[in-house]
């Protein structure tokens, strides 16, 4: 059953009212549903909360069919959610919004933690939220930051050089364009050997952290027993085309067996084709079941926090979870309100 929720109004007594809009999907009694982690889904780029091609709705309902609850919502200023107060920094605000959404699920009865599923900039927000808030026990990151390696660069150059289709298109461009007869072919040769060892510094305004920082953060999460599924597409094929390239890049880090990396080279960045969407849903479903098997109650949030030496969020004073999150932001190097 789905219901609309509005939340994120700030402190109790705050006259500004709830500004965030979402849809909570709880497919059954909360004593049953919330024995496993609930999912949070939010904006990819500036597409509103339903996601590109309605992916978030489709995924939320696929999870519901497995008995998994979810909340999909718009971050402040996107979709149907009102803008944040003036001066709020986007990244910090996004984190506060994700934490507020987790609070909604917790108030609804969620007790086995949360997973965040984010695409592109949504993946960036997802992993930062998990770093900041110990209630997160899982992450699905779709086309998160990617980093090239010499081996990946050679593999991609070889692939381009042996792609007959590319050469045919280049020759076609040359013959059809009336330009110097070698221009199209030269362009392909150049593309085939261009350097890709540096990480992209910006991707549509998305700033990549240094590889070491991303690796350190993923290691911190997996050490905390956060399960992570990373799934790349052709969007990052200039940097990696195979899971082994990721392992090369992050060889210095120990992810404690909690990190799975896929590369779906038949999928584009936003999964336009229905077949690619179906593969994505199946993969997330199987990953979820492997991490939190059906019929097995996942550890409750309070127990997890106690095991980690932290106060259980559910026993804490109001807004403590948000306080933990903001403290986490500071640890992560994000300045609240900056």
């Amino acid at each position: 059953m789905e219901r609309v929720v509005e939340f994120g109004g700030g402190e109790e007594g705050d006259a500004t009212g709830d500004r965030l809009v979402g849809v909570l999907n709880r497919p059954g009694d909360n004593d049953v549903v919330y024995r496993r982690p609930a999912a949070l889904l939010f904006n990819a780029g500036i597409v509103h909360r339903i996601g590109p091609h309605r992916l978030n709705v489709k995924l939320a309902r696929a999870l519901a069919a497995k008995g998994v609850a979810s909340l999909r919502f718009d971050i402040s200023g996107l979709g149907d959610s009102a803008p944040a107060p003036a001066g709020a920094h986007y990244e910090t605000q996004a984190l506060e919004d994700i934490v507020a959404a987790a609070d909604v699920l917790e108030a609804d009865g969620a007790r086995a933690g949360f997973i965040a599923i984010g695409m592109c900039s949504g993946a960036d927000n997802a992993y930062r939220a998990a770093l900041a808030d110990p209630r997160f026990v899982g992450l699905t990151l779709l086309d998160p930051y990617a980093y090239g390696t010499p081996r990946a660069k050679v593999a991609r150059a070889m692939e381009k050089a042996t792609d007959l289709g590319r050469w045919k298109r280049a020759i076609g461009r040359t013959l059809g364009g009336g330009q110097d007869s070698s221009a199209g072919v030269a362009a392909v040769q150049s593309e085939s050997t261009e350097a890709t060892d540096a990480a992209p510094e910006a991707d549509n305004g998305r700033v990549y952290p240094p590889l070491a920082d991303f690796g350190r953060d993923l290691q911190a999460l997996t050490t905390r027993d956060v399960k992570i599924l990373i799934r790349y597409t052709t969007y990052v094929e200039e940097f990696l085309t195979d899971p082994s390239h990721f392992r090369d890049a992050f060889g210095a880090f120990d992810f404690a067996g909690n990190l799975d990396v896929d590369v779906d080279r038949r999928a584009d960045h936003t999964y336009v084709r229905l077949a690619a969407q179906q593969r994505l849903f199946s993969r997330i479903s199987s990953w979820y079941d492997a991490c939190w098997p059906e019929g097995v109650a996942a550890p409750e949030m309070g127990a997890r926090a106690a095991n980690e030496g932290e106060a259980p969020a559910s026993n804490a004073a109001p807004n403590t979870a948000k306080g933990v999150a903001i403290e986490g932001l500071r640890r992560a190097g994000v300045r609240p309100g900056s």
């Binding site: 052709t234 080279r265 038949r266 999928a267 584009d268 336009v272 084709r273 229905l274 077949a275 690619a276 179906q278 593969r279």
Partner: peptide, 10 residues
């Protein structure tokens, strides 16, 4: 759209 080949796609 510049979509990759996908044998699964009908």
């Amino acid at each position: 759209m510049p979509l990759p080949d996908d044998p699964d796609a009908k």
